[in-house]
Amino acid sequence: MHKSKVTTSRGATAVWALFCAAAPVQGATGQDGSPGSPSYYVYVAAESEDRVDLIRFDGTVASLVDSVFVGRFPTEIDGPHGLAVDPDGERWYVTLAHGNPFGAVVAYSTATNRPAGSAELGFFPATMQVTPAGLLFAANFNLHGEHEPSSVSVVDVGAMIEVARIPTCTMPHGSRLTSDGSRHYSVCMMDELLVEVDAHRLEVARRFHLAPGAEQPWPHDWMPTRPAGAPVCSPTWAQPSVDGRRVYVACNRNAQVLEIDVESWRLLRRFETGEGPYNLDVTPDGARLVVTYKGGQATGVWDLASGEEVARVPNTRTLPHGIAVSPDSRYAFVSVEGVGGQPGTVDVIDLEEGVRAASVDVGKQAGGIAFWKVEPR
Rank of each mutant, 00 (worst) to 15 (best):
D156G: 06
P167M: 12
M189I: 13
G158T: 10
H184F: 01
G181P: 01
G158C: 05
M171Y: 12
L193P: 03
V157M: 05
S182G: 07
S179N: 11
M190D: 15
M171V: 11
L193F: 07
I161S: 07
S153P: 08
E192G: 02
M160I: 00
V154G: 04
A159E: 13
C188K: 07
C188D: 09
S153R: 12
S179P: 06
L177A: 09
R183Q: 06
P167G: 07
D180Q: 11
Y185Q: 04
Y185K: 05
T170E: 12
S151G: 14
V187W: 03
T168F: 05
E162R: 03
M160Y: 02
S179C: 13
L193N: 08
P172K: 03
S182A: 13
C169T: 14
D191M: 09
P172L: 05
A159Y: 08
S151T: 15
R176Q: 15
E162V: 00
T178Y: 10
M160R: 02
C188S: 09
R165F: 00
S151F: 05
R183H: 06
H173R: 13
G174I: 05
A164N: 04
S153A: 14
V154S: 04
R176H: 14
S186F: 03
A159V: 08
T168K: 06
V157I: 14
M190L: 15
G174W: 02
S153Q: 14
S175H: 04
V187S: 03
S182C: 03
M190K: 15
T178E: 13
C169K: 11
C188H: 12
T170G: 05
R183G: 01
T170N: 11
L177H: 09
M160W: 00
G181E: 05
H184Y: 02
A159F: 08
H173I: 11
G158M: 07
V163R: 00
L193Q: 08
D191Q: 13
D156F: 05
S179I: 11
E162P: 00
C169S: 15
D191S: 15
T168W: 04
S151K: 08
V152A: 10
I166K: 03
A159C: 03
I161K: 10
T178D: 12
C169I: 11
M190V: 13
D156C: 04
H184C: 01
A164E: 06
T170M: 10
R165C: 00
P172V: 03
H173D: 14
S151D: 15
P167L: 11
S153N: 14
P172F: 02
L177K: 09
V155K: 05
P167N: 12
P167K: 11
C188P: 06
